[in-house]
Design a protein around this nucleic acid. Structure first.
Lengths: 349, 349
DNA sequence: CTTGGCACTCGGTACGATTGAGTGCCAACG
DNA sequence: CGTTGGCACTCAATCGTACCGAGTGCCAAG
């Protein structure tokens, strides 16, 4: 049950690969001519009958050929797909991309998602490293309006985080300048996460309130800015997530008869949902989630191929593609794997 | 030819509104019962025959009802649609949104595009103000790596622009710090555009090269950072453009039989193309571009409804929706108008 | 276990008949 | 002269029938 004999495996492989190619149910004739096993169509029919009984394939209607089930794809991915190699052209394309890629994290990730979409012809998702772990290179507070301050943090990966802080009373230029200096001192050279805890350190100034209103003002500004920024980061309001090639979804439309394309587009627009979905699925290596294995109803006709990428040995983020269950898993896995490797290498340097 | 008599107009209006509602060709019966003109179906048939001869309506096939042509929609928009009022619910939704909206430009625009998409049920686009005209509130240079500097500019509207600058040799902390100070001085309190010209001012330091290598280094850093930032802004590499509700396109799919949804999604992904398209169309007030009036082939079955918004009396940007030609133009125009007004007001304060 | 043969199933296509919505035209009416 | 009811006509859509062919399942023979 868990292992198929060699011939059944060959038949299943042929069915999967042919179906992925043509989108047509595959008959015993086609299989015999494809596999090159020295057996007749009748034999293949017997095998197919068994494969169907065990749930690896199904017929859309009684007199049609067979179509892989999710279980069939699963077996294919686990036992038959092997380690695919990307065509040389694609490989070169990827290497070239990374050799001339930008240093700025957010741009790099956005472009990577487009690259992956281009290579696989599916929608692609790239999740960036947790911001918490990144070093702060510069930080300051900028007064936008008399009662509005913008807290800006420049990170070592080149991305910039910002959050707006509103006050009830007008602030003075000087107070903000002082606060900015203290804000900078507090953040500079630390990891974002390490600044989370010391928020408390801002508080002591509350006691200085009686002492000096100016000092109090400054303390309050710094304090609230820290909190605002931290809240934002913790709530993942700004999930560093990039989606590329959404237009590919529509091109695959024929495959998505029941689940409408628009549902999938909505899902891809909801970064928070998408990110938690991916976190849930992600394993240490290549992960493939096929059709009904997905918890989300909208994804019952889709497959995800995901892989984490490592920066300096640590899992930093995820790359993945989203396509129909009828996808070229070898190619998708090869592309996701290659790009996750390259991206990790690029970010480690 | 250019003006229809009252009854023809009523017939055309009925056909447009009914067709927008039901997506079915409209027959003479339906028109008579809708309009409440005291005339029989036969009379209406005569009128329809004339309207068809003049190109306002057409029959998909000889024994079907009539469907508006692009010209018919045009007449409807120009003479019949009138000034639509948004339902109170929608109005309230918009007002509430703006009353609790963020100060930060880029977030505001992104959310506005989603709001507009939500109200109209079409894809929506918001183009932000030209960055050139915005005041710089803070600017500095941050060393990311020994040979990589990030130029960061905080604008008065709360958005942050950045550009990476790579050097051939290692830089010293001190040089970058000096450069950052000069960079800040050069930008602070000016409009971005006003910093474009003075790039030359950075140059004189070239002559100081013989004098002091350090000074030269600093000058070079500032200089190249200015140029990098300006180049980026001029080339519109970062078109401040936000697209919302792309999933609505797929929902309208039935209307887009020939032009595939995926082509439209691609178009919306290409911000540069999209922006120039909108710039080309935009007039002083509400602009509607219908089907074949669009130059782009992909848009031949779509209509655009656009309006500029004013910040302190100046045209600052554009909001618009993209939907099928068979769209509710009254509602779309009302929504685009209301939101352009509100957005302008919000940004002017 | 394999194989060729054969009956069977059923989707897809082609064809014809029927239905019904909608038109265009015309003759009559006010 | 504009309006109207009547009527013949057109044509998409629907349905039933027949047919073809791909594909299967089963079985008996090798």
């Amino acid at each position: 049950m868990t292992e198929l004999d060699e011939r059944k495996a060959a038949v299943l492989r042929a069915i999967v690969e042919q179906y992925v190619d043509t989108a047509q149910p595959v008959g015993s004739q086609t299989v015999t001519s494809m596999t090159g096993l020295g057996v007749s169509a009748a034999t293949v029919r017997n095998e197919m009958s068994l494969l169907e009984r065990e749930g690896y394939i199904a017929q859309p209607h009684p007199s049609a050929g067979r179509v892989p089930t999710d279980r069939g794809y699963r077996y294919y991915v686990d036992h038959l797909a092997g380690a695919g190699q990307l065509p040389a052209v694609e490989r070169r394309r990827i290497v070239e991309f990374f050799s001339s890629a930008t240093f700025v994290m957010d741009q790099l990730l956005a472009q990577t998602s487009q690259l992956l979409a281009g290579v696989t012809s599916h929608a692609a998702v790239v999740v960036g490293p947790e911001l918490q772990a990144v070093m702060v290179r510069a930080a300051n507070l900028v007064m936008l309006q008399p009662r509005v301050v913008l807290a800006v943090v420049v990170l070592s990966n080149g991305s910039v985080e910002k959050e707006v802080v509103a006050f009830e009373d007008d602030l003075s230029e000087n107070d903000v300048a002082d606060a900015s200096a203290r804000f900078a001192r507090q953040f500079a050279g630390r990891r974002l996460a390490d600044v989370a805890a010391p928020v408390g350190e801002c508080l002591p100034d509350d006691r200085a309130r009686a002492h000096s209103t100016a000092a109090h003002r400054v303390g309050e500004i710094v304090n609230r800015s820290c909190i605002a920024l931290q809240t934002r980061l913790e709530q993942h309001q700004s999930e560093p997530l990039y989606v590329g090639g959404t237009s590919r979804l529509a091109a695959e439309h024929d495959a998505f008869v029941t689940t409408s394309t628009s549902r999938l587009l909505e899902l891809l627009e909801q970064h928070v949902v998408l990110a938690s979905l991916m976190r849930e699925l992600l394993g240490p290596g290549l992960t493939v989630s096929i059709g009904s294995e997905n918890t989300s109803v909208d994804l019952r006709e889709c497959s995800l191929v995901l892989a984490p990428y490592l920066v300096e040995g640590e899992q930093a983020g995820t790359v993945g593609v989203l396509g129909p269950t009828r996808m070229d898993y070898r190619k998708a896995q090869a592309a996701v794997f290659t790009i996750s490797q390259q991206l990790g290498r690029q970010l480690s340097r």
